[in-house]
Design a protein around this nucleic acid. Structure first.
Lengths: 229, 229
DNA sequence: TCACAGAATTAGGATACACTAATTCTGGGA
DNA sequence: TCCCAGAATTAGTGTATCCTAATTCTGTGA
């Protein structure tokens, strides 16, 4: 009862830092102080201070001027927050009438307040989903997560049927725009024609042809449509 | 845009103080520093300090050594917290499998994190209930609340059919004990016999006769059973 | 190789809230 | 009326987190 955390209670700030660092280190590479500061809208000086404190608590590994990366324990906490966030989003959309463009902020606050019990009750009510309304994978309670390799629609070849699996965006306006066009996870699309130089892309979406910008297409992460069943 | 709050965001501590003071001033009489300290498990010195700060924010009226009472604004905030707490408890019991003895702590944390939108969505999902699983009245969104005059079962006359309306207790063990005996809001009971000197009370509960202590009976708030329909 | 721009850290302060210890006030008996 | 026990407040600290300003480090281009 010494090195081990009393249980699992961290301040809201600590949870936010760990989650941000998790998001900023895709391959476990260290996250920089300024990236963390930008992600959390704090000054770099504040981030330096917090990194030092979190290192002392063995939630981060940190060599001065070399960025910070999560320890095993830090990663565990971060993944728990990600699970909470995505499970809460899923629940609010499925049972309380939220739309995917309005659910983020609510989840952002609730994730710090829910108990593990509540998260598991929501999971059960949803049938233990493995992805959230944006298609982002939900880590399992043990921290494991299945990450499918996906490519942005902007890079996909013409003529091949693709399934939108994830929509990687938080901006409500953008999400609403996509929803209005039926561009959401699970939908099958085929690129009809792509203009060169990152120009607009014509896509067939469920019998309709739409033209979208390359910028938008970058947010749509797809897999090749297969028999699957 | 000066005396008026930016919007409606207070710290968790502030919300807890206001809620506690609300509960401690049934008739708007000032709550004492030591009562607040006891309710929140804080030192009286800390409470003195916070009372001063809340007075400056015009959430409390306070004359030194004379206790604190809510201002109109303070009362509004307190009632909003009470609504949240009771609505959350109702929702968790109705939709997420919580029992009335385990729901309090979860609600205590969530009430600081939910948005008004979420509270109203839960209210709608529940059909706008006016009381929570313990029978406590839920203030309306505008702060109005119907409080029925009730008397404890321990004081009720023999032979008169009574409806349990509220169970005023938080202790999980006590609540479980009552639930096991079918003593919950909405149930009709009749006192068969009362022992003198605060002795045990025999009651008929839905065709069964039970004997409970006067202490327990004090937590059961009842109204006379009437036609009602 | 070395200076310098930009990144990171340290220094020094502020705020919110908690605590213990010391002090002050209030109201009720003698 | 006056004293004193208990309640309340003030004084002085500590922790967590943020900030701005000053300083230090790192890596890159000449």
């Amino acid at each position: 009862m010494n090195a081990v955390q009393a249980s699992d209670s961290f301040t809201r700030s600590v949870e936010d830092y760990l989650k941000a660092i998790y998001r900023l280190s895709p391959e476990g590479r260290p996250a920089t102080t300024s990236d963390i500061a930008q992600a959390l809208d704090l000054s770099p000086a504040s981030v330096s201070g917090m990194i030092k404190r979190l290192s002392e608590q063995r939630l981060l590994d940190h060599a001065p001027y070399r960025g910070a990366q999560l320890t095993e324990e830090g990663r565990r906490v971060a993944l728990r927050m990600v699970r909470r966030h995505r499970m809460i989003e899923s629940y609010l959309v499925a049972h309380l009438g939220y739309s995917w463009d309005t659910v983020h902020d609510e989840a952002e606050r609730l994730e710090h307040a829910v108990s593990d019990t509540l998260v598991e009750r929501m999971a059960a009510a949803l049938g233990h989903p493995t992805s959230d309304p944006h298609g982002d994978p939900i880590p399992a309670a043990d921290g494991s997560m299945i990450e499918e390799a996906l490519s942005p629609l902007s890079d996909a070849p013409e003529g091949v049927p693709l399934v939108i699996r994830r929509v990687s965006a938080e901006d409500p306006g953008l999400l609403r725009h996509l929803a209005e066009r039926g561009l959401r996870p699970g939908v099958t699309v085929t690129i009809a024609e792509r203009q060169p130089f990152s120009g607009p892309i014509s896509i067939a979406v469920e019998d309709e042809v739409q033209v979208i910008g390359a910028e938008l297409a970058r947010h749509l992460l797809c897999a090749e449509a297969e028999g699957m069943a």
